[in-house]
């Protein structure tokens, strides 16, 4: 059994090990990072790095935004948000899919529109009055 496994290991080349190793690191760090984030509450929409609007994430809403290349559409669906259509050539922003955690961001560079989730977390634990 063990011999069999060791034999199969020989099929993996050093380049493969490198890829496995890098993905391992990526998995561990992103898991650590993402697990600690609080559930988001608000969506901020930016156009040309200026805040255009803030929406609650706890709703169902389709929103069209006019950018320099055309109309981008964003869908908010009870706690999560995504780009649903965009005039940009490669559609990277749409392929990002849903986001739902605070500090997550999707940027559409061609149409200069970005969305990010802001946590409702307060900046302090208690107030001195």
């Amino acid at each position: 059994m063990i011999k069999k496994i060791l034999k199969s290991f020989k099929l993996i080349k050093s380049g493969d090990w490198f890829v496995i190793f890098m993905f391992g690191i990526l998995t561990v760090t992103s898991a650590k990072f993402l697990w600690g984030l609080p559930q988001g509450k608000y969506l901020e929409i930016y156009k040309n790095n200026e805040i255009l609007a803030t929406y609650s994430l706890n709703q169902e809403l389709k929103k069209q935004i006019h950018g320099p290349k055309g109309v981008t559409e964003i869908i908010i669906d009870k706690g999560k948000v995504r780009f649903s259509s965009a005039p940009c050539p490669k559609k990277y922003c749409i392929h990002q899919g849903w986001i739902n955690k605070a500090n997550q961001i999707i940027v559409c560079i061609p149409n200069k529109i970005s969305i990010s989730i802001v946590g409702s977390k307060k900046k302090y634990d208690s107030i001195n009055y």
């Binding site: 307060k122 900046k123 302090y124 634990d125 208690s126 107030i127 001195n128 009055y129």
Partner: peptide
């Protein structure tokens, strides 16, 4: 009522208090 004691910490970070 506004008199606050920070006992220990909030895990890795210190307790943070807002001043009204």
């Amino acid at each position: 009522g506004g008199n606050i004691l920070a006992f220990g910490k909030h895990g890795e970070r210190e307790w943070i208090v807002g001043i009204q």
